[in-house]
Design a protein around this nucleic acid. Structure first.
Length: 402
RNA sequence: GGUCCCAUCGUCUAAUGGUUAGGACAUCACCCUUUCACGGUGGCAAUAUGGGUUCGAGUCCCGUUGGGAUCACCA
């Protein structure tokens, strides 16, 4: 299920949602159901009214400025900046005054005193004293909901069994557990994963340090990203997976560490190269315009899947040869045996070139490679030559564009 | 500042209180390839720090230092 948490009108833009969908789909995620919080306000309102009647949700008239001042004062005194619940002590006169001033209330969820505890799949037993937590604001002055309340209602209504999220949510969990209880829902099982850090410190989705779109544009494979990220911070080796299902099957909460792994984009790129070189034809056949045989022969030399085009062009289109040693390449052209070729053709031919030219090793291979491909490196010439074919090979060795 | 979490090779991590502290990635060396690349085999490399508990501590306890999260009318 994909759930769109779009209760904040100011921040919920269609383009953000579209970008997220696009990235999720590209990464290979599928969902068969969708829900949108902005379509469920009636449900939230009903529960809200119930909880207001029970005294678990209460109206507050503090302004953001007043709250800010209170927070600063508390911290300056070395106290925890917890909301002082002044709203619970309003007199009739106070309320009349707010009304006269035209102030509108926002609403908080009232935490019950006591220890809130849960058994976190990755953090183990967790506990917080409710008295040391602020009553969370759940409805803004403009009447719109903040994420806490709708999310608990939805998780409960949709029968969500496990909440797996970043550890930046641990404190929220304490308050949310009381919300689940207040609305009569079942408290889900929680797993709070350590947040990744960047090589030079924090990594934040809000800083835009990392974007799926950018990685995609740089040629990083979707499954390389998934394989890498899923195993980072676990005791499993990071290795290529070609399907999300297989990857998911290999995952195990037991293997998750509790300390923050570093995410290094360079490492991902490096892994991606390894990933591309190991990709089976089935994983790329829809995107590349080459045969399985061609893919398998050239793939160990690719950095990006799109580089396959470079080799397809070298074998099937025109190349302007680079002649480094004219005597040698002319000789090689003259000695090129007639087709059909077999496995021994290359060796026989090259040995003859070697014998007649007196050149060996790099001096022998490099000029031939440059003439045939115009590049410094690539798959073995023995592999490449049959793919290029006699006609093109001979012309290129003679310095003719072919 | 309050609350909470974390600390083992460069990186990700493994080790019922008893191992030469293991693996993977990176790096280096060698081998293979009559060339570059690919590949194969080896080497280097770590328990942040100070106390305790114990016959014995990476492992348990306390302190220190360092890192992170949270304390929004964001999610």
């Amino acid at each position: 299920m994909l759930r769109i948490d779009d209760t904040d009108f100011a921040r919920s833009k269609k383009e953000y949602e579209d970008a997220m969908r696009e990235s999720l789909k590209w990464l290979g995620f599928n969902w068969c159901e969708e829900a949108r919080q902005s379509a469920r306000f009636a449900r939230y309102d009903a529960l809200r009214d119930e909880l207001i009647a029970k005294g678990r949700i209460y109206a507050c008239y503090d302004t953001p400025e007043e709250l800010q001042i209170k927070r600063k004062r508390a911290m300056a005194k070395g106290e925890a900046p917890i909301y002082d619940r002044q709203a619970l002590r309003y007199t009739e006169a106070d309320l009349a005054k707010f009304k006269a001033e035209g102030r509108k209330p926002h609403y908080r969820f009232k935490l019950l005193p006591g220890i809130i505890e849960w058994n976190d799949i990755v953090r183990g037993h967790c506990q917080y004293e409710a008295e040391k937590l602020s009553d969370p604001i759940i409805i803004r002055e403009d009447g719109s909901y903040l994420y806490h309340f709708p999310s608990c209602v939805d998780d409960s209504d949709f029968g969500i069994t496990h909440i797996v999220r970043g550890e930046d949510h641990v404190t929220n969990t304490a308050a949310q557990i009381q919300m689940f209880e207040a609305i009569g829902g079942k408290v889900p099982t929680f797993a709070h994963l350590p947040l990744l850090t960047g090589v030079e410190g924090k990594l934040s989705k809000r800083l835009g340090s990392l974007g799926v779109r950018e990685l995609k544009a740089e040629g990083v494979e979707a499954m390389a990203i998934c394989s890498f990220l899923a195993k980072l911070g676990t005791s499993d080796a990071i290795e290529p997976f070609y399907s999300l299902d297989e990857l998911a099957d290999s995952l195990d909460f037991e293997k998750l560490g509790r300390s923050q792994p570093k995410f290094d984009e360079e490492e991902l790129k490096h892994f991606n190269t390894k990933f591309v070189r190991s990709m089976p034809y089935a994983a790329v056949k829809d995107r590349v315009n080459v045969s399985e045989e061609f893919w398998n022969k050239v793939r160990p030399n690719l950095d990006l899947v799109s580089d396959i085009k470079i080799w397809a062009d070298i074998c099937h289109s025109e190349v302007t040869p680079i002649i480094e040693d004219k005597a040698l390449t002319d000789l090689a052209a003259d000695l090129l045996p007639p087709e059909p070729w077999n496995d021994e053709t290359f060796n026989t031919w090259l040995n003859e070139v070697k014998a007649q030219s007196g050149k060996k090793g790099k001096e022998l291979f490099h000029p031939i490679r440059k003439a045939l491909t115009a590049l410094d490196n690539g798959p073995e010439l023995k592999t490449l030559l049959p793919l290029i074919g006699r006609e093109k090979a001979q012309k290129r060795l003679k310095g003719i564009k072919a």
